[in-house]
Structures are given as structure tokens and as C-alpha cells.
């Protein structure tokens, strides 16, 4: 465990020491994403007061929250690091370490959360002043704690879902397009593009059963007090179940992959 936190600490220091363009890109990315969401929401509400269960400000707040949560849940360029290790033969040194490779990579991802956390604090500080607090919304210490737990599980789930995809690099000459495909599916079915309650009723049980909701929309709903304790417990159980499935799949793919890994890179 000490080694885990050491790796996370090293990664966090590396990230915090990062260059100005990292912060500039992050800020522009956030402002642009929010700007597009703002105009989209205003256009959607041009003919009506409410859309499903959302008021205009309620939906804007959802977008702010989901954009920020996505920063905490998705790793940054670490997403490609595992495939790169395999392509370039850099995996060799990790195979000699007394700690499983996946655990080390997850520790690095946890370390990368620190700059994301700083961004979330900085970028969200203005929200109550600009958007106000929509009617009926109550963010309490309890909902914040529920959201924090959901974000931690979401971060693990996201890592475990992308991990076996990156391990495809053992066989394929390039797998970044599969990661992008995963990102697209997660964006639409995870609630980044649109609140999931806008999807038709028949699709809700499917969205509930898939892992993507628990990566993004679920932590946001927990924060905004939109889930009851019972729904929260059920959601966390499903998310952890998906973590188990993804971990088992990762282990199987890893075993097969390392059997044919030559260690010389591509």
C-alpha cells in the first residue's frame, strides 16, 4: 500500500509541475465545453420552462457538474500509456517489479487526480454566484460524501474498463481508436452529452444496467441529491459489479497477452 501511494505521489508531483500549456488547454477546454453546453441548453429551453425534470438552470448546473466530474473520472493522457508500454517494449521493466502492473498504473492514475482536483475546485468556485442554486436543489454534506464515494468508484471503473482495451495492444498494431470508441460510447450513454433522463423510458433499464451511467451521471446525481439512499446503494453495487467483471476480463486478457509478449516493442 505504501508503494501504491508513493507511485501516486510521484505522478501527482509530476503533473503539478507541468507546464503552462497544460493549464491553458484545460481552461480553454472547460470554457469551450461549458460554452457549447450553455448555448445548447438555452436553445433547448427557448420554447419551454421545463424539460423533463430539469429547469434551465438545473440543467446548466448538471452540465457544469458532469464536465467537472468527467475530469476526475477520466485519466488524461495516461489512457494511452499502457498501450504505449506494450508497443515500445517498456513493459519489460514492470514485469520484474514485485507489484502487479495494473496496480502500478492505477496508482499513477490516482496521482493524476491531484491536478484534476485543483481544476475542479478552481473551475467550480464561481458556479453558485453565476448560476445561483436552482429551486429544490440541496447539496448537503451527505450528498457531497455520497458523490465523493461514487467518484472514487467511477474512477476505478473507468480505469478497469479502459485497461483491457489497452491490452489489445498485445495483438493489434494500434488500439487508440478503440479507446476513442469507448470514450464516445461513454460520453453518450454516461450522461456527458445529455442528462440520461432525457432518453426514452424504454431505454432507462438498459442505461441502468450498462456501466457508463456509473462513470459520470451517477456521481453527479448523487451530488445534486437526485438519488435516494436505496438507489445509491443499488447503483454502487452495480458499479462495483462491473468493476469485478472488468477486472476479471483484464486478468484473462493480461494472461493471454503476456504469453505472447516478446519484449522488443514494435
Amino acid at each position: 500500500m505504501r508503494l501504491f501511494w508513493s507511485i501516486a505521489g510521484v505522478e501527482a508531483r509530476k503533473r503539478m509541475a507541468y507546464r503552462a500549456d497544460f493549464w491553458l488547454n484545460s481552461l480553454v477546454g472547460f470554457v469551450t465545453e461549458l460554452g457549447v453546453a450553455y448555448f445548447l441548453v438555452v436553445a433547448m429551453f427557448s420554447g419551454s420552462e421545463r424539460l423533463g425534470e430539469y429547469s434551465r438552470n438545473g440543467m446548466l448546473l448538471y452540465y457544469v457538474a458532469v464536465i467537472l466530474v468527467a475530469r476526475l473520472v477520466r485519466s488524461t493522457d495516461l489512457e494511452w500509456a499502457i498501450a504505449d508500454d506494450i508497443y515500445q517494449g517498456a513493459l519489460n521493466r514492470y514485469l520484474l517489479y514485485p507489484v502487479p502492473y495494473g496496480v502500478m498504473k492505477y496508482a499513477a492514475q490516482v496521482g493524476a487526480l491531484l491536478p484534476a482536483l485543483v481544476q475542479v475546485v478552481l473551475f467550480s468556485a464561481w458556479v453558485p454566484f453565476v448560476l445561483g442554486v436552482p429551486e429544490g436543489l440541496r447539496i448537503t454534506p451527505a450528498t457531497a460524501a455520497m458523490a465523493a464515494g461514487a467518484v472514487l468508484v467511477a474512477n476505478l471503473l473507468h480505469f478497469l474498463c479502459t485497461y483491457p482495451i489497452q491490452l489489445v495492444a498485445f495483438w493489434a498494431d494500434n488500439c487508440w481508436s478503440l479507446l476513442v470508441a469507448h470514450r464516445l460510447v461513454a460520453m453518450i450513454f454516461g450522461g456527458i452529452m445529455l442528462p440520461l433522463t432525457l432518453f426514452p423510458a424504454w431505454s432507462q433499464p438498459i442505461l441502468d444496467a450498462l456501466p457508463f451511467r456509473y462513470m459520470f451521471a451517477f456521481p453527479v446525481d448523487a451530488l445534486l441529491g437526485r438519488v435516494t439512499p436505496g438507489q445509491y446503494a443499488a447503483g454502487m453495487a452495480i458499479a462495483l459489479g462491473w468493476c469485478g467483471v472488468a477486472a476479471a476480463l483484464s486478468a484473462a486478457v493480461w494472461r493471454r497477452g503476456t504469453l505472447q509478449y516478446t519484449g522488443v516493442g514494435i
Partner: peptide, 15 residues
């Protein structure tokens, strides 16, 4: 992903 996005939005608005 784009088509689904617009399709879902237009379930709630006509324009």
C-alpha cells in the same frame, strides 16, 4: 453518437 444526440434532444423540442 451525433445522430443519437440530436435524436434525443428532438424528443423534447421541435426546433
Amino acid at each position: 453518437h451525433h445522430l443519437v444526440f440530436f435524436w434525443v434532444i428532438y424528443r423534447h423540442t421541435s426546433l
